[in-house]
Design a protein around this nucleic acid. Structure first.
Lengths: 219, 219
DNA sequence: GAATGTATGTTGAAATTTCAACAAAAACGA
DNA sequence: TCGTTTTTGTTGAAATTTCAACATACATTC
């Protein structure tokens, strides 16, 4: 477990928790590490939302499927990021999404009630954990809001440009790499893949954009 | 201030806080009540996100405007509900939305840092407040997710049906009243108003729906 | 290196949305 | 009550998206 301490220290859920407390804390929380191969389901839609997940290695996608095949990518989380915490802490009886491994991944799963409710022993870190979870949820709500900003745009072009602007801002550089291939990007923007390809082509011909695979540059 | 205690007791942010603590707490938090006429701006886009708002009476809308006039209604909150907490707690430097009064309203505003950081005096309720805020943020994140579920649908019809299903589930009754007029509903669903009217008409003619003004019934 | 599968770009037709303009109905104020 | 304003429904044309099918490029495996 110790080999994960470095990545866990970067996790917002464990901010300001000393490394020598980490072991005891994870023990108290009943944390367990599981490996998942690419495309495997980590949390399944319809099941009870009890666990908070933390990506130790690899990355995961939060996805949702229509009653008729339309796949939607709600979000993607990489190393050190937390997922499913809103549903677990919000006490939803049935997960409205699935979480799958976007690549081979190691995941730390913690039952949320163990974070929220102090154990019998007086663990010094529970208050801190609740504060951290609160902060994390606030950031998550803002992220949801950013996604909303994208999907609320009416056209493929506007959605794409809104997304690219966010990604560029996040990366801080002129050239940046997005975490999606074309199909996934379409599923994230909630648009048709072929229409997306067409739009990327158009924007390049108009000289507003340079795109090679996952590398983009706004001009 | 005392006349608001009843509504404040129903506010998730103050869950499990005794009524006789309420006065001292609001004092410690520097809470202040302001009245806003219909359509007035309570929090303006672009300003610093410092305040958490609570609706004491009336209702508010969280809205966002494109660089070209497209208005989008992110959410609507009624009595006892909290708004802007995610941005304030998440520490965003500039509000990406505006909050306006949907009708004449009384609003309680609290600087968020007063909730997050204990004051010099040892106030017993700060831990409780942080826990409540965490719970509230989790619920808010789930709500954002529900909105995402709507806007991620591709057609006006699907968005409308997804919205109505949510509203019906929330009300628990076959007949239910939505909090929007047609234009606001269109701005919430991110679709064209005239197209929305057409779609409501179609669904009624197909016998899937009964709609009179804000009253709806799914058949 | 050939064969297979995946990812991406392209195209045209069908469906849908948006836009603008107008008519009818309802709400509001004097 | 009348006149004004707001809300809602309707329509047709233009723009856009979706859908299906296919071609090409790229990667992987044997």
């Amino acid at each position: 477990m110790k080999k994960y301490f470095k990545i866990l220290k970067s996790c917002p859920l464990f901010a300001d928790i000393a490394e020598d407390e980490m072991g005891a804390m994870l023990d108290c929380l009943g944390a367990r590490v599981t490996s998942f191969g690419k495309k495997y389901t980590i949390l399944a839609e319809g099941t009870a939302a009890r666990h908070v997940g933390i990506v130790l290695s690899g990355s995961v996608q939060v996805i949702q499927n229509d009653w008729f095949g339309n796949r939607s990518i709600v979000g993607q989380m990489g190393e050190g990021e937390v997922f499913a915490e809103a549903f677990a802490a919000g006490g939803v009886e049935s997960l409205p999404v699935s979480v799958i491994a976007a690549e081979d991944s190691e995941i730390l799963l913690i039952e949320c009630h163990r974070i929220l409710h102090a154990c019998c022993k007086v663990c010094s870190f529970h208050q801190r954990l609740i504060f951290n979870l609160m902060k994390d949820l606030a950031v998550k709500a803002v992220q949801f809001h950013q996604k909303l900003e994208i999907t609320s745009k009416r056209t493929t072009r506007e959605k794409l440009l809104a997304f690219l602007a966010q990604q560029q801002k996040k990366s801080g550089k002129a050239k940046f790499t997005i975490p999606f291939d074309r199909q996934d990007l379409a599923d994230f923007l909630e648009v048709d893949r072929s229409g997306l390809s067409t739009e990327i082509g158009k924007l390049q011909r108009e000289g507003m954009l340079r795109a090679v695979k996952r590398e983009f540059e706004l001009l």
